[in-house]
Amino acid sequence: MSFFVSSAYAQSGAGPQGSDPMVTLLLIGGMFLFMYLFIIRPQRKRQKEHSALVSALSKGDEVVLTSGMLGKVIKVDDNYVVLETGNGIELKFQKVAVHAVLPKGTLKSVDGLKD
């Protein structure tokens, strides 16, 4: 066991940084601050933006789903949205699958690429 941890550290209880608990608390506090500022806060902001986007959906909006499918909203329910994806093709999806609302006329410009 002595080749993993030197005997002096194991017997004295002191680490390489010394025995100051304040340094350890500052490092842990800094780590939590870093995680909050760079991970938790931006994720909450994205969740709020997505919730606002989903709640503002209305009939006639052109949307793209997380799967990449494009469609025009023809019916909005509490948890579901019905999209027209082609000539008379209606598909029902969960609202949370909506990734973004596209500018009006986007579907016509994309359909023009097929010709």
Rank of each mutant, 00 (worst) to 15 (best):
D77G: 05
K59T: 08
K59Y: 04
A100D: 14
E84S: 06
G15N: 10
L26Q: 15
A97R: 09
G29S: 11
F3H: 15
L33S: 04
A56M: 03
S19G: 06
Q17E: 14
D78K: 05
K92R: 15
N87A: 11
I74N: 09
G86I: 08
L91I: 15
G29R: 02
L33Y: 03
K48W: 05
I40A: 06
S2Q: 11
P21I: 04
D78Y: 02
D20C: 04
H50T: 01
T24F: 10
A100M: 14
K114R: 14
R44C: 00
T24L: 10
G60V: 00
V73P: 00
K45N: 05
D61Q: 09
K48N: 10
Y36W: 06
K108T: 14
K108A: 13
D111W: 14
L25A: 12
M22P: 00
V54Q: 00
D78W: 01
L113H: 02
I74V: 15
H50F: 03
M22S: 08
R44M: 05
P42Q: 02
K75D: 06
K95T: 08
F38N: 01
N79R: 12
A10Q: 13
M1W: 12
M69C: 11
V23G: 09
F32N: 13
V110T: 11
S51I: 08
F4E: 11
K45W: 03
Y36G: 01
D61T: 01
G68A: 13
K92G: 09
E90H: 11
G105N: 04
D77Y: 11
D77M: 08
A97W: 07
D20W: 03
L37G: 05
F32S: 10
G68S: 08
R44L: 06
R46T: 04
E49D: 13
Q43F: 01
S109T: 10
V101C: 01
V101W: 00
L27H: 14
P103D: 12
A56W: 03
V101Y: 02
A14F: 05
G88V: 08
A8D: 13
F93I: 13
G29N: 07
F34K: 09
N79Q: 07
Y36F: 04
V63H: 02
A56F: 01
G30M: 09
L91T: 15
I74A: 03
I89D: 14
Q43A: 04
